[in-house]
């Protein structure tokens, strides 16, 4: 069985995303090991907010894979509903992040404060941009899926969304747990 063109394209996108996020996180890890004093800054990130957001993304991944399952069984309207629920998860994630960042900026921890916070805002910001992109695409896919059209797209956006979840799985311990 050949890999459908759309899905193949998604895999290639993700291969390039691995290099983008891998490069950023690799640079962060080597600097973090080299500068133990970054722990003085990392102590100020909110573990519970990060943990809650991890739960939200894991749950949204569940709804994305259930949407894929529904699409495979020809139930476009159900797949569309589940994709919109997934989007709601993305929105929740972004709202929590907005509150978190507002609080940190109010305390004076901005992207220019020092290298730890530069990495923090860059990595989390780049990830948030991917969440927003995923939500926009998902809403477009949900619109056609609701009419039982182009159901193969549900799987493609699902794969992308799981990758976004996967990146956060590594960002969470790096930015929130390693104090």
């Amino acid at each position: 069985m050949e890999v459908p063109t759309g899905r193949l394209a998604v895999w290639w996108v993700l291969a390039s995303e691995i290099v983008i996020f891998g490069g950023l996180l690799g640079a962060y890890i080597m600097h973090r090991i080299g500068h133990p004093a970054w722990a003085n800054q990392a102590i100020h990130t909110n573990t519970w907010a990060g943990g809650f957001n991890t739960l939200v993304l894991l749950s949204s991944s569940l709804s994305a894979v259930l949407a894929h399952h529904a699409a495979e069984h020809g139930d476009g309207p159900k797949a569309a509903r589940l994709l919109r629920i997934t989007c709601l998860g993305g929105l929740t994630f972004l709202v929590v992040k907005a509150f978190e960042w507002t609080h940190e900026i109010e305390l004076g921890y901005t992207i220019t404060s020092n290298l730890f916070w530069s990495f923090y805002y860059t990595a989390a910001g780049l990830h948030a941009a991917h969440v927003i992109a995923g939500m926009v695409i998902m809403l477009i896919v949900a619109r056609t899926a609701a009419r039982n059209q182009e159901l193969q797209r549900v799987e493609n956006i699902g794969i992308y969304w799981h990758f976004v979840d996967l990146v956060w799985i590594f960002l969470f311990p790096l930015l929130y747990i390693a104090k």
């Binding site: 890999v3 993700l14 291969a15 691995i18 891998g22």
Partner: peptide, 27 residues
């Protein structure tokens, strides 16, 4: 768990996994 079960890499063509692991190797 996410890659194998949600992204279905466990049942995807084997070379897809190799491409992704190749990128990790670059890192």
């Amino acid at each position: 768990l996410v890659a194998k079960n949600f992204m279905h890499l466990g049942i995807e063509r084997r070379w897809v996994t190799y491409i992704l692991l190749g990128m990790v190797a670059f890192m």
